[in-house]
Amino acid sequence: MIKKFFYTLFFASLFGLFFSYELKAQCGSELTDICHAELGDARFIRDFPVQHSEAQSGSSPRVTRYNVVLNAGTTYRIFSCNDQTKPGKVIVSLYRGDQLIATTYDVDSGRHFPYIEYPVSASGQYSLTFMFKDGQEGCAVGILSSVR
């Protein structure tokens, strides 16, 4: 009886260690691998890792921008995943020039959407921006993929 208890404890702790290690290593390329699982059918094009430290009080949160060229006739899907060990939740936004096309965060409902699907009909240069809600410290990755 006691033996069983200790065995389970032992394995549980191992388990825990394993997970904690996993969790710890999330920010970075492992995060992309985990996020990649969400793709399903979509074909991976590019990933955009983002890591921001906590924004200074008073200043606006940091925004990271990436330019992409999107082609007409292709439907793109833009995913994002957060590193759970950090408080920040990423907000991904798609712009054409200055015009906002889509964003993963709905201010009114306060909901974060997992992805943006965009069938492109006008080829051109777009940009993706990444920031963390409330300027919190965060680590996330955005994935650009195309739907077949």
Partner: peptide, 14 residues
Amino acid sequence: EVDGSIVVVDKSRS
């Protein structure tokens, strides 16, 4: 919003 995610409808053309 479609099925818990955002879908964009864009009538722009090039």
